[in-house]
Computed example of a mutant assay.
Amino acid sequence: MLIRFPDEIRIYVACGYTDMRKQIDGLAALVQANFQLDPFSKSLFLFCGRKRDRMKVLFWEGDGFLLLYKRLENGTYQWPKTQEDVREITPQQYRWLMEGLAIDQKKMIKTVENKRLL
Rank of each mutant, 00 (worst) to 15 (best):
V31Y: 00
M108G: 09
Y12W: 14
E73K: 12
S43H: 03
A29K: 03
F5W: 11
K56D: 09
P39S: 02
Y94M: 04
R95H: 09
K42D: 15
K110A: 11
S41I: 09
I9C: 09
L46M: 07
W60E: 12
G64N: 07
L27Y: 01
Q93P: 04
A29H: 05
E113P: 08
I11T: 07
P91N: 02
L27N: 00
V31T: 01
F59C: 09
Q36K: 10
L66W: 09
D104H: 15
L37Q: 09
C48D: 12
M108C: 12
Q32F: 07
I103K: 07
Q32R: 07
Y17K: 06
V31H: 00
A14V: 02
C48T: 14
K51Q: 13
I109T: 06
D104R: 08
K115C: 06
W96H: 15
W60L: 05
F65L: 08
K115Q: 11
D7F: 06
E61S: 06
R52V: 03
Q93D: 14
R95F: 02
K107S: 10
V57R: 01
I3F: 14
A33E: 10
P80T: 13
W60C: 12
M1R: 13
K106L: 15
Y17T: 14
G64K: 07
T76E: 15
N74K: 11
L97W: 00
K110H: 05
C48S: 11
I3S: 05
V86N: 01
K81I: 08
F59D: 07
A14D: 13
L67W: 02
T18D: 01
I9T: 12
R87A: 04
T76R: 10
Y77K: 01
D104N: 14
